[in-house]
Nucleic acid binder design. Structure first.
Lengths: 197, 197
DNA sequence: CTCGTTTCTTAACTTAAGTGAACGAGATGA
DNA sequence: TCATCTCGTTCACTTAAGTTAAGAAACGAG
């Protein structure tokens, strides 16, 4: 499993053997069963995660209803706001599938950065990149309709449609499960009306 | 103007005199007139910005229509995706008001980080924090209705309602100017029906 | 394999947002 | 000063999403 991690990092910078060893020593690789809740509302998150295999979901409970806001799959990383602010979380995080994750916290990070300052550069760059991408995703969401968002989702993450329940996908796309069902139906009849053979 | 910048940074870490000097030497502080376009679709952005005074707006032009997605005001920073990826931008950035900005690019950053490695830590932490906050804003947007978003906006950035045109605010809130106008009217009559004097 | 729960779909109805058009107030400029 | 343009509002109409409820299908535990 570490090899996937090394391969991912080497997209950003090549790793020396010493660095690889340091990662192997320090990085906690943990497996979790489908359904495991990693973070609950009220908790102060101790950890951030990097997904090696599986799928995480973040959600809120609003008026007794789950509202899914993100999915994290292979090579996505996630640090809850609660980890950054050290205040109780409002969001939940759980495993949609069996997961293999690397688990990290600021203390481990600090130790790592002191030994290998290049890792801090890596983290800074990754985080700047994620921030810019997240802003663009947010922009796309604002500037498109539920139907466009569903179509865009099918294009950009086709595998996920199969991996997550519809009702979770629906709230991720900012609509009710009924609306998503309706949109799917609408699209099927549209396709039939003008087939693209 | 530099004093505001130092005050902001010292929320994260206290600055030595040498560091302050380095910032004064390297940080480009520029003023721009209201209406100045800092980035256009197709450009590859050379710079990131930190707002000392004024208001920036990012937007897209979709089917000939401007769609506003963000406002950046005092002590907000913004690095376009185009700056990170070095690919042509799809978004525009312009000054809603006369602005005083610090202007930076990766080369200046690099020089700074080499002289004062602590600045890289500062940038990493700020960027991690912004990422987590941006994710939460996105979550809030997904889980609320246009009316709730308008009310939340009134609470969290009351000054901005006065500073930006309604039609820009409307698309920022993910709706048409007509809808925003309708919502405002609805809220007035609601307040009259159950006055909170 | 069966029972019970969860998930997905469908339908009828309600509510609110998008659309296109028109109007007036205020700013802008010749 | 008068004509023009922009911006915010309003209206009538269309379209789509939310709500409530019910039934079918898929899934999981025993």
């Amino acid at each position: 499993m570490e090899n996937e991690l090394f391969a991912f990092i080497s997209n950003y910078m090549p790793l020396s053997e010493a660095e690889k060893e340091a990662i192997t020593d320090l990085a906690l690789i943990r497996t979790y069963q489908k359904g495991t809740v990693l973070l609950e509302a009220g908790d102060i998150s101790p950890d951030g995660y990097f997904v090696l295999k599986g799928c995480l979901r973040s959600y809120y409970i609003i008026d007794g209803e789950e509202r899914t806001t993100s999915f994290y799959t292979e090579f996505d990383s996630f640090a809850p706001l609660s980890l950054v602010t050290k205040k109780p979380s409002e969001q939940y995080l759980s495993c949609v599938e069996d997961c293999i994750l690397t688990v990290g916290n600021p203390e481990m990070e600090k130790a790592m950065f002191e030994k290998f300052p290049r890792f801090e550069t890596l983290c800074r760059i990754m985080s700047e990149e994620l921030l810019a991408k997240n802003q663009v995703s947010f922009d796309d969401f604002k500037t498109s309709t539920p139907e466009q968002r569903y179509l865009e989702f099918l294009k950009s993450r086709p595998d996920l449609v199969q991996r997550v329940p519809q009702y979770q996908l629906a709230s991720y796309l900012g609509m009710t499960p009924q609306s998503l069902s309706r949109i799917r139906k609408r699209l099927v009849t549209k396709t039939k009306a003008s087939p693209a053979h």
